[in-house]
Design a protein around this nucleic acid. Structure first.
Lengths: 217, 217, 217, 217
DNA sequence: GATGAATGAGTTTTCATTCAT
DNA sequence: AATGAATGAAAACTCATTCAT
């Protein structure tokens, strides 16, 4: 069972491998599109059924409620987006490296998430819009974020601080700045003005520059 | 007719000055609260009416549609939030000043918007959530932003670049970075974790530091 | 107090002579227009108020209910339209005359009602549409019609029959035929295709011809 | 799939043959009754639902709007009522026949439409009341009437005129007179005073007499 | 007399969900 | 598994009428 970056393609694959029935995959596809277009609350299950070429009842055979459908869509995205923030295949002690290493790591991370966002921008949109209103999603996110992302960030930042390579701000502030810059970039790139001609390589570099200099003493 | 920073207090004032009937002010109050809590699409006019102590029909006497109500709430906020980004009371040629001046300007700007956001955080929330789904709001924002904010930013950035004080990135990128940092801060401060004990002065300074260093060569 | 054929002009006159306040006249005017356009049930008092340049409450100061307003409009029209079907100024024994006289009488009658309909086509329209649904109107009409119109028709028809000038159908049938022809003409002329270029004189003559020959043996 | 004259019975048949669900047929039945009683604008979908023993939502599953329901009711009636005015099963050149033939044709036509009106008087009522207010209905009627009815009438009238059998009025006038007489009869018979004891055969003959003599020189 | 804000009962319409087939 | 007709609760919205000013 191959793992794919594009969650929608993953769906098709899952369908073939019978993790999902084909109808189920169609439903998820349609739901992602429609949720992204109009938001969860303004999307109707009947419209989703229509776009999925499926009877209205079929949705509820697979997902007990509409909310269930949302969660089934958002959960895998959230884990896949957040988890590999410092993915397991990075060297364990990547942060004991000199700061150029940190920059390099950051660059990899950003490129990484960049491609993921590119492949899944409707999902990114859904998460950003809906997380505010669904405690279930917040908890999920909270869990993954505080358990996986924060600790690794802190590890890295503490290391850098101890070497005097970065300014001595609270970790929370620094993480916020880094995340704001990255998410601000992704949102602008894929949601606000995706129609622009972007030089993505350059823009990533600029964002890295901004973060690295921003954190310097 | 005094102008108030807090848009909700402004409502009460407007009501007294008969720009608005008292019921109308109650409706707006209630709508802001409920829209912020559950989002526009999940808010029902009947709930708004109940919270406002008003008959449901009364809402529609003053606002032809529910969407109308949203727009009546968001429009004044958007202009007041965006317009004074570089308010007219700043010295006209503030940007011909040395870069310390820019930093000072930025600090004023951030404090400025910080207080506005503090006073109006439910409105900030509403705008961020709803702008994605309502073309009317997008246009309004677009208009005010490209006409008022962008040109002044560009003026300042060009000046700084010509003096070699900042890195030579496209203006659009730089504006995005600055805005991401500010908005990321405001959102974290007032929406994501408002319950935290924040040292606001310090945090503003850190954010300024991050932006100024981030833009340096 | 002059009596006018055009009921709307009559309104203005009444207003001047203080039978009606000016606002009241405006209300009636507006109501006639709107009732004729969309029908009683689909007309809203607020729209009437708007078109009359009057506050919503003002309507109800003069007419206790919306239905009241309808009746105030329809009643004078109905009496004026039906009553003079064989007006009092016709010679009492007009029907003891030879049949050429009947034809002449019919012609006068039709021209008469023709001009009245021309002046008051919106009212004609309102009556035709609404009489079906309002027992009050039906009673009124019934009263005037069976008391004033039928007896005179019968008188005339009996006379003609006794002279062998017309076919011997039941009076009810004959009245129906005559009325269908006249109303069919008026409705076509003023309601169905008023935009056509009509040669009214000719058309009236044709209608008379049709009725007279139709009733002949 | 038999074709029935009574549109309501047709509904039941359609229901059995699964053109319509049973609930759908109940809805149409109830709607016809209620529209006829109180008029379209004064009928509420909730009352229709109640009379049809159906949830209100069920109406909207089958008919997108209340107007849609009206149109679904009126359209088949209008075609069935108007189309066979000179039905295709009449001999093609029926009008090249001597005038007795025309009278016979007219008689068939009237009896024809008489029975149809008898079976469907509520529908007749609805059409007469509502056509004035719904452009959609007007267009439909216009279409069918000018395409099917008028040309055949004209053909017949021209033939009769050329033979000097009838008076030389414009066709439009003659058609109006004929139609007024027929519709005036049907309306009186089935809508205005259906409770009367009518001798229908006789009354049809009288109406034919009236028309034929009316059109004579 | 005139106003127009306010009402609340009623209207059309939507929609997630159920269930018999 | 899949369908789609049916539901009923709730949504947005309308409107005749009242009433304080």
């Amino acid at each position: 069972m191959k793992e794919l970056e594009n969650i929608l393609e993953q769906l098709e694959q899952d369908a073939k491998e019978e993790d999902l029935t084909p109808k189920q995959a169609q439903i998820l596809q349609a739901a992602v599109e429609i949720f992204a277009e109009k938001g969860y609350a303004s999307s109707s299950t009947s419209e989703i059924a229509a776009r999925a070429n499926v009877a209205e009842g079929t949705i509820f055979r697979h997902y007990k409620t509409k909310k269930d459908l949302l969660i089934s869509i958002v959960t895998p995205f959230m884990t896949k987006f957040t988890l590999p923030f410092f993915a397991t295949h990075f060297a364990k002690n990547v942060f004991s490296q000199p700061p150029e290493e940190f920059e390099e790591l950051l660059r990899t991370l950003v490129k990484n998430r960049f491609h993921f966002a590119k492949e899944n921008s409707p999902l990114l949109r859904i998460v950003l819009q809906e997380i505010a209103f669904h405690p279930e999603l917040q908890e999920q996110f909270q869990g993954v974020f505080t358990k996986e992302v924060i600790p690794r960030f802190e590890e890295a930042l503490n290391e850098l601080k101890s070497k005097g390579k970065v300014v001595d701000f609270p970790n929370a502030s620094m993480i916020r700045m880094i995340m704001s810059s990255i998410i601000g970039f992704l949102v602008t790139r894929f949601i606000l003005v995706p129609e622009l001609e972007w030089d993505d390589e350059e823009e990533i570099d600029r964002t890295i520059h901004f973060i690295m200099h921003g954190l310097s003493k």
